[in-house]
Amino acid sequence: MSGAGNRLEGRLAELRAAGRRGVAPYLTAGDGGLATTVAVLAALEEAGAACVELGVPFSDPIADGPVLQAAGERALAAGTSLGAILDALAGYRAAGGELPVALMSYANPLLRRGWEAACAAAAAAGADALIVPDLPLEESGEMRAAAAAAGLCPIHFAAPTSPVERLRAAAAASRGFLYVVGRTGVTGSGTTFDAATRAFLARVAALSPIPTAVGFGIRSAADVRAAVAHADLAIVGSAMVERLHAAGPAAAPAAAAAFLAELQEGLR
């Protein structure tokens, strides 16, 4: 499952070859129950999502704003565990699901298993990439080795505060895409695509040898349009999670597809 065999790298290569950009929804796994999460994955695949970022809930999400904190608390209260999430993902793959999935987890739930075991289990379940928001380059050596051995793409972050040498190093250490933090802050609150933000996105896109994905604070088709002006993907997290929660488990798949269609207007 390495190289061209990785679903995420394959999908991004297809997009680039076709001169297209994509929307990548973020889901908190287990919010509304894992059966809902799997049904939403299928609906998003049907509706043409480029890929999905699948978040493992954690008790202390220091990079997340109120919406994703609350979603994580709901998922944990419902008994969601990393093992159950990977089982659900394996079920989605067994049923023929082909959407590329980047698993997002804070370091501790993965460290509890150990990097090798965690990456092997994630890859075996059908994950394609791993995003660890509290694991900067300095601490990521073991994770990168384990991800490479398992055929997972390690994905690092580029932040507006990162000096250029850190941006280059993050891009060089990542596979699949480089995750560009669109705003200085936690997830959720709106990003203003002002001149400084646009210049930052353009600078990162120019120095990154791999595709880039912009996340944090993208809530509308207009935001998607601004983001993909300088990136391959727009990641939509809090706004998607809010919609799914408001719809409730039964209506979540339809709500996900409808909101994705709305966001994809920004790709035209």
Binding site: P133, D134, T161, A170
Partner: peptide, 11 residues
């Protein structure tokens, strides 16, 4: 160690 989000690494 330094298990911090990238945004905090420069600070």
């Amino acid at each position: 160690g330094v298990y911090a989000p990238e945004t905090l690494m420069a600070p």
